[in-house]
């Protein structure tokens, strides 16, 4: 009973993790890609907590998703502002 439920849990977790990675990598908008990356980091922390590694999950949630996500968010909004200042085409790729 518990083993079957746990297998279902694993399947949902892994499928969504890979789907999130694909969505973050192919998204045309840069800021959307960064937010999907933050969600990916959160999901990864959840998976590692499931694999009984709470210390690693803690570090990933605080440093990987939080700090890295905030850094990338700042960089993405700088890129968007530069693009709207230059008008139209974005130097960093992706539409503004």
């Amino acid at each position: 009973m518990t083993a079957g439920l746990l297998l279902l849990f694993d399947l949902v977790l892994v499928t969504t993790l890979v789907g999130l990675a694909i969505a973050a990598l192919i998204s045309p908008d840069l800021r959307r890609a960064v937010m999907l990356f933050i969600a990916f980091g959160l999901w990864l922390a959840l998976v590692w907590a499931r694999l009984r590694a709470p210390d690693v999950a803690l570090a990933e949630a605080a440093i990987g998703a939080g700090l890295g996500g905030a850094l990338m968010l700042a960089a993405a909004r700088r890129a968007a502002r530069r693009a709207s200042a230059n008008g139209g085409i974005d130097a960093e790729g992706g539409e503004a």
Partner: peptide
Amino acid sequence: LGFAFEMPALADVALVFALLAAVSVTA
């Protein structure tokens, strides 16, 4: 999960998740 696996350490991870939401909204 922490209660199902009997791993109280997962509550600390939950605490960090709670802080993370505030940080990302502020950013």
